[in-house]
Every structure is written in structure tokens, then in C-alpha cells.
Design a protein around this nucleic acid. Sequence first.
DNA 1: AGGAAGATCTACT
DNA 2: GTAGATCTTCCTA
Length: 198
Amino acid sequence: MNPLPKSFYERDPALVARELLGKTLVRRLDRQTVSGKIVETEAYYGENDPASKAYKGRKTFNELMYLDVGKAFIYMVHGNWLLNIVAHPKGGVGAVLIRALEPIRGIEVMKKNRGVKDVYALTSGPGRLTKALNITKKQNGLDVTKAENEIAIFEAVAEEFEICTSHRIGVKRDLPKELRFYIKGNKFVSKRENLSID
DNA sequence: AGGAAGATCTACT
DNA sequence: GTAGATCTTCCTA
């Protein structure tokens, strides 16, 4: 399995968010490697997106959103670390928030990190998955296109699934476009629209 | 120093 | 299912 190349992230964040679904996120810890399938994402833009961290212009803390694509951009919200991947066309601003994973490997480690037993509560939320994968500000700026890095995202084996969209979750002022993407019917998606399906 | 932030958990009706 | 408390940094005044 190969890591997704830089060029993958050098496009409109909404497109990158959509296409990140189904890909594999790998986290290397001291002794073990844990991984999960990306099942839910959201796209964020720059200064014309009121929900974006870059809404108020370039600052030290959001600088990564303006720089090289394919880097992890991590910040704290309500006591939770949230993992984003920088994505935008050349010279643009943007990032994709990883909102939920379906655990693949290292489920026991994730349970330990999270302190819960329920598999469906392990990584089904942006704050939950960073805790399960032990991701903090320390990993800010990591290049996820390098297979050997602590965090990396890999191309996945071909697989069939339907993609749904909705408005972004929890944001005060959203854009008219639906910028949240998730895999239809997947039980690890963070919110509840998927209950009724399949 | 104070407040806001894209969330989560718990305890209820 | 919904409401409210509380989670922890970092920015802004």
C-alpha cells in the first residue's frame, strides 16, 4: 500500500475531503501500529469561511493552512485535539478535518487510550479519534505523505461505498455548501443520520 | 486575565 | 433525544 502523494492534497479541500473517505490512516506508536479507515471528513477554507481557523487571516497558529499541503494541522477545541490535513490548490488556504475512523488495527490500544470498551465509541468523533490514536499538538506539522512518519495516510484497496453529504457539525456560521462527507451506513460515523440507512 | 473554540459525557425528561 | 456542565489550550485585549 502506498501513501497518498502530495498532489492528492493540492486540490479543492471539498474534493480532497470527499476522496479521503475510505483511505487508511496509520499511526505509529512506540511499539505498535494502529490504523483505521477514514469514514467522515469536513472541508474548511480560508478567509471567506467563517468556520475556518483561517477566517481572521494568517496568524502564527494557523500558518500551516497556508503552507505545504499534506501536513497534519492540529489544534485544541473544548479540550479535544482535532486532526486536520492541509489541503488546497497551489497558493490557496484550507484543510480537511478528519471526523471519524473505523478501527482496523490496534483496537486494544485504542480502548486503553480512550478508556472505553464500546468499539463504536472508540473513534467515532474528531476528539475521540485523536485520543484513541494518542495524537496531540506534538504531531502538528507532520507530513502524512511519508510512509515512515508517525502519522501517514495510505491509498486503500478498491472498495464500494456511497458517499453522503451534510452541513458541517457544530460550527456557528456555516457556508451554504455542504462540506461534510461520510460513508453511507457506516456505524463509525459520528452523528446519527446514518441510523436509518441500510 | 478572559473568553472562545469545528466536542464529549452525563444525567435527565 | 436533549440539555447542561465541563473538558484545555491559545488568541486577543
